[in-house]
Deep mutational scan, measured.
Amino acid sequence: KNAAKIVNEALNQGITLFVSDNKLKYKTNRDSIPSELLEEWKQHKQELIDFLTQLES
C-alpha cells in the first residue's frame, strides 16, 4: 500500500493524519483506532511523514 491510499482509508474512517514536529499524528472523533490501522501506520511511518509533509508544503 502506498501513503496516499493509507491516508485516504484513514479519512474514510473519520481519521485525519498529519505531521507535527516531524512526528505522525492523528485527529479523530472516534473512541478508538483499530489496531490494524495503527500497525499499518507504524509500518509505513516514514513514507506517511514524507507524503504528508510534501502535501503541506
Results as ranks from 00 to 15, higher is better:
Lys1Gly: 11
Lys1Arg: 12
Asn2Gln: 10
Asn2Val: 12
Asn2Trp: 09
Ala3Phe: 04
Ala3Asp: 01
Ala3Glu: 03
Ala4Asp: 05
Lys5Pro: 02
Lys5Cys: 13
Ile6Arg: 03
Ile6Asp: 01
Val7Thr: 03
Val7Asn: 03
Val7Met: 04
Val7Gln: 02
Asn8Glu: 15
Asn8Arg: 15
Glu9Leu: 05
Glu9Tyr: 06
Glu9Val: 05
Glu9Gln: 08
Ala10Glu: 00
Asn12Ser: 15
Gln13Phe: 12
Gln13Ala: 12
Gly14Ile: 02
Gly14Tyr: 04
Ile15Gln: 00
Ile15Pro: 00
Thr16Gly: 04
Thr16Pro: 02
Thr16Cys: 15
Leu17Cys: 03
Leu17Gly: 01
Leu17Lys: 01
Phe18Gly: 04
Val19Ile: 08
Val19Phe: 05
Ser20Ile: 13
Ser20Pro: 01
Asp21Arg: 05
Asn22His: 10
Asn22Val: 03
Lys23Ala: 09
Lys23Val: 12
Lys23Thr: 14
Leu24Cys: 03
Lys25Glu: 11
Lys25Trp: 15
Tyr26Ile: 06
Tyr26Gln: 02
Tyr26Trp: 15
Lys27Phe: 10
Lys27Arg: 13
Lys27Glu: 09
Thr28Ala: 06
Thr28Val: 03
Asn29Thr: 14
Asn29Val: 08
Asn29Leu: 11
Asp31Thr: 12
Asp31Leu: 11
Ser32Pro: 11
Ser32Thr: 13
Ile33Asn: 01
Ile33Pro: 04
Ser35Asp: 13
Glu36Pro: 06
Leu37Gln: 04
Leu37Glu: 02
Leu37Ser: 04
Leu38Tyr: 07
Leu38Asn: 04
Glu39Ala: 10
Glu39Arg: 11
Glu39Thr: 07
Glu40Pro: 02
Glu40Trp: 05
Glu40Val: 13
Glu40Phe: 08
Trp41Thr: 02
Lys42Ile: 15
Lys42Asn: 14
Gln43Pro: 02
Gln43Cys: 06
His44Cys: 06
His44Trp: 11
His44Arg: 07
His44Lys: 05
Lys45Met: 15
Lys45Leu: 15
Lys45Ile: 15
Lys45Asp: 11
Lys45Ser: 14
Gln46Phe: 08
Gln46His: 07
Glu47Tyr: 04
Leu48His: 00
Phe51Cys: 02
Phe51Lys: 01
Phe51Gly: 00
Leu52Ala: 00
Leu52Gly: 00
Leu52Tyr: 02
Leu52Phe: 05
Leu52Asp: 00
Thr53Trp: 06
Gln54Asp: 09
Leu55Arg: 13
Leu55His: 11
Leu55Ser: 12
Glu56Cys: 10
Glu56Gly: 15
Ser57Arg: 14
Ser57Ala: 14
Ser57Gln: 13
Ser57Leu: 13
Ser57Thr: 13
